[in-house]
Simulated scan of single mutants.
Amino acid sequence: MRIGVIGAGAVGGTFAGLLAAKGHEVEVTARGAQLDALRAGGLLLDGGWGEHRAAITAHATLTERPELAILATKAQDSATALAANATRLEGVPILVVQNGLGGLEVAHRELPDAPLLGALALFAASYLEPGHVTVTGPNPVVIGAGPGADRVLLERIAGVVGEAMPVEVSDDITAAQWTKLLINHVNALPAITGLSVQEVVVDRGLRRVMTASMRETVRLARRMGVRFGKVQGVSGSVLNLLAVLPLGIGEQFPRLLARRMGAVPNPGSTLQSIRRGQLTEIDFLNGAVVRAAADHALLAPVNAAIVALVHEVERTGSFLSPAEVVDRVPV
């Protein structure tokens, strides 16, 4: 199959490398040093799913109309990326692989005639250097139907991707996205402190802040009538417990997430963006909680404070100490 991957960072690079290894014709879009490296030596993908050197075609925008497009840019870049590739994507099925909420809505607004599927990348991957992506947590991808996609298309695309990596099919991708959004609360504090997810969870004060942000999110979701889907063994019933448990007991949840990441320090995608000097997708992660709360005349003070601190680090380039974070987030 001819597959176009828009955004060849950690997630897009993983898709591109594994799909190319299965014999698909893969073209990726990239910029700057990443584009130069992919053109010069292809993509090196190693780690949890083995080592692959993928000879892929790379350009600033797609040069051919694919049979399947995979949107793997950061959420804040998706509208611009889709607009830049719109002439190649008319009517093409698009798999939107992004953290946070709103990705399918943005894609539908930009390309209303394209059948859309949503995907959650549960695997952990790091963009180590131009042309090199390492998979540190070989977990599944969850795929569900979005606007314009029926069950037949969903199963066909899930079958194609499933040949390259483990896939779980969801009947309610929005509910699954909310669960992934909660899991992604592990990303913000590493971006603020410069620590790995595992180091954040080990720190008592930071772990308490992380748990408080998760508890606030679950409580708000329940008031808004949001459902949580089962993702990576995490069910809605487990998450609903966070709304009622004391923080000290609720801290077992981020500890569980950190243990699942293994021993290799995981920086999280938001810290990776900070290290590259890029704007983060925090407004689509914890910031999505703040916006959803505001839409229902509710407040999310813990998540709002965390979002503000990430933007402060983006602006200043200076990380904060754990003590500063604990002092400035209202838990």
Rank of each mutant, 00 (worst) to 15 (best):
90 E>T: 15
319 F>W: 12
322 P>D: 15
160 V>K: 15
245 L>F: 12
210 M>K: 13
11 V>D: 00
51 E>V: 15
235 S>D: 06
118 G>W: 03
312 E>M: 03
273 S>L: 02
67 E>C: 10
170 S>Y: 05
170 S>M: 05
229 G>Y: 01
171 D>Y: 02
18 L>E: 06
148 G>Q: 03
249 I>Q: 15
220 L>P: 13
311 H>A: 09
253 F>E: 06
191 A>P: 10
91 G>P: 03
194 G>K: 12
106 V>M: 08
78 S>E: 08
323 A>L: 11
159 G>E: 09
37 A>T: 03
306 I>P: 04
140 P>D: 12
232 Q>H: 06
119 A>F: 09
56 I>D: 00
329 V>Q: 08
190 P>C: 09
274 I>C: 08
219 R>W: 07
110 E>C: 09
111 L>M: 04
44 L>D: 05
139 N>P: 01
74 K>G: 03
194 G>L: 12
215 R>S: 09
161 V>G: 13
318 S>V: 10
305 A>K: 12
100 G>K: 08
108 H>P: 06
91 G>C: 09
102 G>W: 04
65 R>Q: 12
225 G>M: 04
123 F>G: 15
186 V>S: 13
233 G>H: 06
195 L>R: 14
8 A>N: 07
268 G>N: 08
45 L>V: 10
301 P>E: 01
43 L>T: 00
214 M>Q: 11
260 R>I: 10
13 G>T: 00
273 S>Y: 00
5 V>D: 02
72 A>H: 07
35 L>D: 01
174 T>H: 11
40 A>I: 01
85 N>L: 02
236 G>I: 04
95 L>N: 07
57 T>L: 02
86 A>M: 10
62 L>Q: 05
157 I>L: 11
287 G>P: 03
252 Q>P: 01
49 W>H: 13
169 V>N: 08
83 A>Y: 01
167 V>K: 15
212 A>W: 09
227 R>S: 10
99 N>F: 02
119 A>R: 15
285 L>I: 09
120 L>D: 05
109 R>Y: 01
44 L>Q: 11
205 G>C: 13
3 I>S: 07
168 E>S: 10
63 T>C: 02
52 H>F: 12
175 A>S: 07
163 E>A: 15
101 L>Y: 03
52 H>M: 12
281 E>P: 01
191 A>G: 11
76 Q>A: 07
36 D>C: 06
308 A>M: 08
114 A>C: 11
143 I>W: 11
146 G>V: 02
325 V>A: 09
306 I>A: 04
154 L>F: 06
273 S>Q: 04
167 V>G: 13
114 A>T: 15
175 A>W: 01
26 V>F: 04
125 A>W: 02
90 E>R: 08
253 F>S: 07
197 V>S: 07
230 K>S: 09
30 A>N: 00
221 A>L: 05
249 I>W: 15
258 A>H: 12
28 V>F: 01
103 G>M: 12
254 P>W: 12
94 I>L: 13
199 E>Q: 15
67 E>R: 14
275 R>F: 11
157 I>K: 13
183 I>Y: 08
53 R>H: 12
238 V>H: 11
165 M>R: 13
172 D>E: 05
76 Q>Y: 07
303 N>K: 03
94 I>K: 14
162 G>W: 07
251 E>H: 07
196 S>P: 06
159 G>I: 12
166 P>I: 01
322 P>Q: 14
275 R>D: 05
215 R>C: 04
